[in-house]
Design a protein around this nucleic acid. Structure first.
Lengths: 215, 215
DNA sequence: TAAAATTAATCAAACGATTGATTAATTAAT
DNA sequence: ATTAATTAATCAATCGTTTGATTAATTTTA
């Protein structure tokens, strides 16, 4: 229940407003280009509340990352322990990842920038660690597929896996190129449901011909 | 020839030193995290020379981009006008792009950041424009392949093209994930000739099974 | 249950440090 | 002597952070 002590605007308290505004602004302009004053002006929460809740601007950023970094793993583990075929597991993984990253476009951009620039190594290490844990699970799908003879045995599994990630990540991080390639107007976007489906379909079809012995 | 008037260190004049140092630093830390003082300390050239030669920090950055943005197009046009098969044109394109982007890893990172963040729209527009011009040429390879019956007719050409770019770009921009996936030590790198070749081979093999009617 | 004490939350104002940029003086080559 | 190139010093503006005071809700005391 609301203690009545915390100030809220439209039902959202100050801590939450700081997080959401920081996420939005940093995704758009990058961490260093976003000042604490931009965040405070963007949500009407007093500047001092950043130190109050998060200790510092970096603390706010860190909280943002720890809040979001993939909860995908649980779902991957369910997939792994299911009785689906390796190919079903893999195509469901693609489905899962596209959905999750599209749900969190702003944060996915933040993550991409953080990994690219590699300032704040604690953050990049944290992110890399979690992505890698997921990758290990997905790698097991590939190996299972090869052992069962469903997948070709001569594929470069690490390269293939990193390609799947690359395609989804890049779609979100470099929408400007996508928009030009797909001839979209300025007000249109490459983040819609239609492109989300088209991306899934393309990825799955490409993997089908690349991986399966009998596509 | 050297007029003898410009100060040089190790044969490199101030303008050039500013450009190279800015490229190095911005690729490592991002544009906003690099101050004019970092650049001047990094190369020993006086701060005021940034205004003197480039007008401003942004001007220096712009000069960096305009200096580098792909001269790939000429080579693509040679490929286009050659009598190679569509598949040969495409696999040579992959070869060309991997080589060029690996030759300019630092600048490729700068480009990736610029496109992701999209501050300074003049820069992103400039980059997008040139990348798109190249994409149009490569698209013609796809269309030619489909018309001749060499390529499958049901492939999503735009998605496929953007995937090729994504995989190469991401390889350079998110080396941290690659290093973890390929279990490299801290001092090792994912930018070596071995990985460059492995990336090419993977891309070409994946495209072969994805595109060709008779792989 | 009323008054006093404590608490978390918020605020405007200011801190020293650093930012990108400019100045005016100096150097060095023609 | 002229001029391009370089320099140290300085500028206003903004940075992230901290301060001391204030508000309002809760807890404790009487």
């Amino acid at each position: 229940m609301n203690s009545g002590r915390k100030k809220t605007i439209e039902g959202v308290d100050s801590r939450e407003r700081l997080l959401r505004t920081a996420e939005q602004l940093i995704a758009e302009h990058g961490y260093d280009a976003v000042s604490t004053r931009m965040i405070h002006k963007g949500c009407g929460v007093n500047i001092a509340m950043i130190s109050y809740y998060f200790g510092s601007k970096e603390g706010l950023f860190r909280a943002l990352i720890e809040e979001k970094v993939p909860k995908i793993r649980e779902k991957l583990e369910v997939l792994r322990d299911s009785d689906q075929t390796p190919w079903e597991k893999l195509s469901n993984t693609i489905d899962l990842y596209v959905d999750r990253l599209f749900e969190n476009i702003k944060f996915t951009k933040v993550m991409g920038q953080e990994l690219s620039i590699n300032a704040r190594p604690e953050n990049s290490d944290f992110i890399v660690k979690h992505i890698h844990l997921n990758m290990v699970i997905i790698l097991s799908f590939f190996k299972e597929g090869i052992e069962k003879g469903d997948f070709k045995s001569n594929i470069d599994v690490e390269m293939t896996l990193s390609s799947i990630f690359a395609i989804i990540f890049q779609w979100i991080n470099m929408s400007a190129i996508g928009m030009k390639l797909f001839k979209l107007e300025d007000k249109e976007t490459v983040y819609g449901l239609d492109y989300q489906d088209r991306l899934k379909r393309h990825l799955i079809e490409m993997m089908r011909s690349h991986l399966l012995v009998n596509p």
